[in-house]
């Protein structure tokens, strides 16, 4: 069953086409890799799914419902969560509170409900578990400003997980982590995926993508240039050319 279908999504910023008629589907329980060289439009595509970016054309369909007109928070309450590539912790509160707040989504979804409740014990317990899961429990009481980038990346993941998402959109969660940390976090994704969370992973670490994502979608210059089994795609001449072309252009 398709949980998410993107139908011919086009996004233009001013006069520049960021995405041109990109279509793809995400199956229940899948761990899909979304790859492509820098500037391919991967982040824009995820931001279109959560609703931060409005498509110029096309539809976002979630379990058969067209959610294109829905706001970001409504989509989030329907089970879409996003981790930001550029970390965005709430800097006025502790690391733990960042996750506690997200874990309280059942209480904060309605303003009156939020006014009527104070207890945070369940959420605090859940938040501590999640911090442990991503390996940053030792920072629980620190302010995010005191954390290294790697830990903030994992805070993003813990906070997104705390909303109990049905679809988790991960925007370069492994960037900035060393090899062992990256491997551990990638294993965590596999475990969560096995528990039923459907995921889309943007990642430049192609080794990890090849290891954990059975299927990938490849973007280049705002267009989809490939889709299929990861092993096949990574040896596909068009995909290789897209990556190498950029490398040459950057060199």
């Amino acid at each position: 069953m398709n949980v998410l279908t993107l139908e011919a999504i086009s996004v233009r910023f001013g006069g520049i086409a960021a995405l041109t008629s990109v279509g793809m589907t995400l199956k229940q329980g899948e761990l899909l890799g979304l790859i492509g060289p820098n500037g391919a439009g991967k982040t824009t595509l995820l931001r279109t799914v959560i609703g931060v970016v409005r498509p110029t054309q096309g539809r976002v369909v979630l379990r058969g419902d067209d959610v294109t007109p829905l706001s970001v928070d409504m989509r989030a309450r329907r089970g879409i969560a996003l981790t930001h590539q550029i970390v965005k912790p709430f800097r006025s509160m502790t690391v733990l509170d960042n996750v506690v707040f997200a874990a309280g989504h059942a209480k904060t979804g309605n303003v009156l409900r939020a006014l009527g409740t104070r207890s945070r014990s369940e959420e605090t317990q859940r938040a501590r578990q999640l911090l442990e899961l991503v390996g940053i429990d030792r920072y629980a009481d620190a302010n995010p400003n005191a954390l290294p980038l790697g830990a903030l990346k994992r805070l993003e993941v813990a906070r997104a997980l705390a909303t109990d998402p049905k679809i988790l959109l991960l925007d370069e969660p492994l960037a900035g982590l060393n090899h062992i940390e990256a491997e551990r976090l990638a294993d965590t994704f596999v475990r969560l995926n096995a528990d039923g969370v459907t995921m889309v992973l943007i990642e430049h670490n192609l080794g990890q993508v090849a290891r954990i994502c059975p299927r990938v979608v490849v973007l280049d210059n705002g267009k989809k240039i490939g889709e299929g089994a990861t092993r096949d795609m990574l040896s596909d001449p068009a995909v290789v050319a897209a990556y190498i072309g950029k490398e040459v252009a950057h060199a």
Partner: peptide, 12 residues
């Protein structure tokens, strides 16, 4: 603190 991020966590 950051209303955009708040939205992505489901806050109206």
């Amino acid at each position: 603190d950051d209303e955009d991020t708040s939205r992505t966590l489901g806050i109206d």
